[in-house]
C-alpha cells in the first residue's frame, strides 16, 4: 500500500475530528486517525514478496518485525483509550443530557 494512501486515512480522521458535531463521532475519528498511523508504520517495514518474520528453513527475505511488535501494543492501547473516551461520553451524557458539542460547550460555559 502506498504511504500516501495511509496518510490520506490520517487526513480523513483529522477532517472528521475538526468538523464532527457529535462527541462520539469525534471518538470514532480519533480511531480512524490511529488506524492510518498503524497502516503507515506497517507499510514502513513492508517488503514486496517478503515472508512473515517467523524462522523457517531457507529464510532470506522477511518483513521488518519491529514495526509489527510496536503496533501490537498500539492496537491494545488504542482500544483501551477509545473505551476511556466512550466512558467519558457516557458521563457527559448523564451530566448534560446530550453528546452534541454545541450543547455541551454552551451549557458548560454558563456554569
Amino acid at each position: 500500500m502506498n504511504p500516501l494512501l495511509t496518510f490520506l486515512v490520517v487526513l480523513i480522521g483529522l477532517y472528521g475530528l475538526s468538523t464532527s458535531k457529535n462527541i462520539i463521532k469525534s471518538v470514532f475519528c480519533v480511531t480512524i486517525t490511529e488506524a492510518g498511523v498503524i497502516l503507515l508504520f506497517l507499510n514502513l517495514g513492508n517488503l514486496e514478496g517478503g515472508s512473515i518474520p517467523i524462522f523457517a528453513e531457507g529464510l532470506v527475505n522477511i518483513v521488518d518485525p519491529l514495526p509489527q511488535a510496536l503496533m501490537i501494543t498500539t492496537i491494545v492501547i488504542g482500544s483501551t483509550v477509545t473505551a476511556l473516551a466512550l466512558m467519558l461520553c457516557i458521563k457527559i451524557f448523564h451530566h448534560y443530557g446530550s453528546v452534541e458539542w454545541d450543547v455541551v460547550l454552551r451549557d458548560g460555559g454558563e456554569e
Binding site: 517495514g45 518474520p53 517467523i54 524462522f55 529464510l59 522477511i62 521488518d64 518485525p65 519491529l66 509489527q68 511488535a69 501490537i72 501494543t73
Partner: peptide, 22 residues
C-alpha cells in the same frame, strides 16, 4: 531487520521474531 534475522533465534530462543522483540 538483518540483525534480528541473523541473531534473533540465538538471543531470544523465540521462533516468532515479533514475540522475541516485545
Amino acid at each position: 531487520k538483518r540483525y534480528y534475522l541473523l541473531n534473533g533465534l540465538e538471543d531470544t530462543a523465540s521462533m516468532n521474531l515479533v514475540t522475541g522483540i516485545y
